[in-house]
Design a protein around this nucleic acid. Sequence first.
RNA 1: GCAGAAGUGGUGGAAUUGGUAGACACGCUGGACUUAAAAUCCAGUGGGCAGUAAUGCUCGUGCGGGUUCAAGUCCCGCCUUCUGUACCA
Length: 937
Amino acid sequence: MEYNFREIEANWQKYWADNQTFKATNKSDKPKFYVLDMFPYPSGAGLHVGHPLGYIASDIYARYKRHKGYNVLHPQGYDSFGLPAEQYAIQTGQHPAITTEANIATYRKQLDKIGFSFDWSREVRTSDPTYYKWTQWIFIQLFNSWYNKTSDKAEDISTLISIFEVEGNAAVKAACDDEITIFSADDWKNYSEEEKQHILLKYRLTFLSETEVNWCPALGTVLANDEIVNGVSERGGHTVVRKKMMQWSMRITAYAQRLLDGLAKIDWPQPLKDSQTYWIGRSEGAMVSFNIDGFEDKIDVFTTRPDTIFGVSFMTLAPEHELVTKITTTEQKEAVEAYVKATAKRSELERMADVKTISGVFTGAYALHPFTGEKVQIWIGDYVLAGYGTGAVMAVPCGDDRDYAFAKHFGIEIINIFEDVDISEEAFTDKENSVIANSDFLNGLPYKKAMKTIIYEIEKRGFGYGKINYRLRDAVFSRQRYWGEPFPVYYKNGLPQMIDKQYLPIVLPEVEKYLPTEDGKPPLGNATTWAWDTVKNAVVSNELINNETVFPLELNTMPGWAGSSSYFNRYMDPENTEEFVSKEAVEYWQDVDLYIGGSEHATGHLLYSRFWQKFLFDKGILPVDEYAKKLINQGMITGTSAFVYRVEGENKFVSKGLIGDLKVQPIHSDVSFVNASDELDIEAFKNWREEYKDAEFVLEDGKYIVGREVEKMSKSKYNVVNPDQICEEYGADSLRLFEMFLGPLEQSKPWKTSGISGVYSFLKKLWKLYIVDGEFSVSDENPTPEELKTLHKTIKKVEEDIANFSFNTSVSTFMIAVNELTALKCNKRAILEPLAIIIEPYAPHIAEELWKNLGHTTSISTADFPVFKPEYLVENSKEYPVSFNGKMRFKIELPLNLSIKEIEEIVMTHEKTQEQLQGKTPKKVIIVPGKIINIVG
RNA sequence: GCAGAAGUGGUGGAAUUGGUAGACACGCUGGACUUAAAAUCCAGUGGGCAGUAAUGCUCGUGCGGGUUCAAGUCCCGCCUUCUGUACCA
């Protein structure tokens, strides 16, 4: 009876599917456990061996938890809206839905081969109308809500209207647009319905506004900051420019503080928390208004150092600042205009590459210092960003590096307002250790006291107020793309109207072309049936638009992160057509206990989804405001590329060891042509490409040895390894074990297929334990203490490893156990049965097969995990290492019940000790019972 | 620049609280089986020196210091690589 993994794995995969072994119920007496993977975008390239790493880890965890008596929810689905399918559609005319469907089929086939314990009955796809119905629904909920800073939560817009009706908006504390006009209750009542809607739009949690966006002309779309890499689009590398557009935005800034505070109660990796903290970017300071000499207008600035206000010697505005044209003097007009123009022209790329250059222009205007009344020059400079704070800064050169450099460069006065600090060479930025001087009533105060005093004074004198500012921006939610969720929105007199829940989903219309229209409208502008009939409550032909009962629908679609921001809640109740998720389901499952995925989502998906969770929590739809208790980032698996070396100018390849002084050009070879010893299959390489057919190969010892280098796994580097091939050749159990064996889950590590033979032969050795004379057979004899010891130390170690997500060391532990049991010729049921269970999470197929052969008729998947018994590991002697001055010289076997004194006596009289000491008396003897003996000479 | 992670044999990596550095594998070398190959099994395998050998000595966890009876692990100062981020007032 051979270990025939092909037959075994196919049989069990069929069994699991037929019996719905891993289907989770929403009702159970067992405690719940929710294990989630970040769901994949089904790309056309399919999975490579790097992708399943996290899925294998989570699957091990899920399977382990089933053995421990939990009702485990372990779903999987697809984030199936996205740009690649759309790009492909633009090129070929094929509908993205067809491409997506085909890609999903490939993914599913590949995933099935690895033997995951997913509950596929709960699968969701973000591009499926029955799913995106709920994405649209959440959008409507956000539209119908405002953020009340007094109650510190989102509330229905009707509560805001009630306040307006009673007292106007003066006292309302809300997260809203910056420019809000104050109105009274009477004003409100006199506003037209349209005016009211315009005002409410400034308060809603999703709102329309003219935003400066990253417009990519080549893709015909707006890109998020994280979709831009080095100033060009992440996909395709096209140029990106700044442009103003009417866009939907999400008021995530309302949640800035809560997103920050929530980090304290979730067990997520510190680096990930740090990057979210940085992204949110909380800073405490003050808003201060500066009057402008000769103008009514004021310049508002946000500063984190109001305590240094007496050090202000100039102000800098962003070139885009609205006051620039107004206040610039005639003498400076030309220079200012040229500078503004030059800045607008500079691409993001240029601005980034050139951080060191100091540039700016004096406007000729002066601000008046609020405390001293002195005149302060107003400059413009592109180091001040229009999008942050107020787009203006009060410059304090003595306390800020950039202001210092700017002042030095343009010869502006530098006022020192720090006690006993020399600022002739550089600014003094150590705020914690600063003591203010030369600053009127702040003199002699340390940082913290100075801050308190100045904010009090600023507020008292009406120059401004203390403020907490966040770097986090509201998230633009519109995309000029086809393959995304349509908005459930139509426009009446230019005002957005939500479509009622009962008519959802609004299904993506058919279009002839997936490109933007000729007049620059998004691709949905090509649709001919894309109008909303408010009588029939249906999508109808555009020809029927009369702006009385039939209105145009929104042409933008939602961004990639829309569908992924709450999908984990939908898994709890995926077939519910009446509610996003039922109360019972969400009360039972609550939240994700373990979430595994890549760290690249740190500030995108993982921040937006926390925002939506908090919002839905505020609305009473979800019971918890953080959705994932624990999160693990799996590391990247890199590829090991292979290189052949072509002699420059010739069609001749030299083996790596023979390069010497030759001028050679390294060329990627497909890794499949190279064996474990780095030898190239020359014939395969020659047949790869026409140009290599007649190439000459210079060999060493009769072989061609390639060079190897670790690089990102990618098609273009010919180092991609496909999991299907591995499953075909070694089996899914080998793949699973090997992916884990590679190294710590959270670190990046290179893939080298040759190593897999180690885990493969381990599985064969494991199999053999259960075989006697070619037949499956185990003995019912009582196990020996040695056998029990091996079993129980394995149970102990594996449970500790799983708790620490240290799956690599578990695999080693299994190997050691099997090696030991093989040496002991152990064939006892009492050992081999529990062994099968503890290996099951890692190698489920072979475990099921062994379990069946042990006489069981049901799946091993819910068998109780064996209980660790420490008594089997009790030792009564220890092989002590005996060190001299910290260096181990020999070992000595001693009973563990000896006292320190007794140990010392035995050790000191030992002949090897005498040999080491050579008659000298040791200064000190250190004995740690059970650990070590160290003799200091 | 800032933030984070990581540097251990030819390779992937292991080493609970400081306590035998290199577990477990890959690769390599030698051997068994075989007409041969594959598969399988056995033995060896960090470097250097000495010895026929058993063995002994010595150096060794990126570099330089320090604490300690004892440091891969703790402290101080550097170097390198990878990842993220981009003038945030």
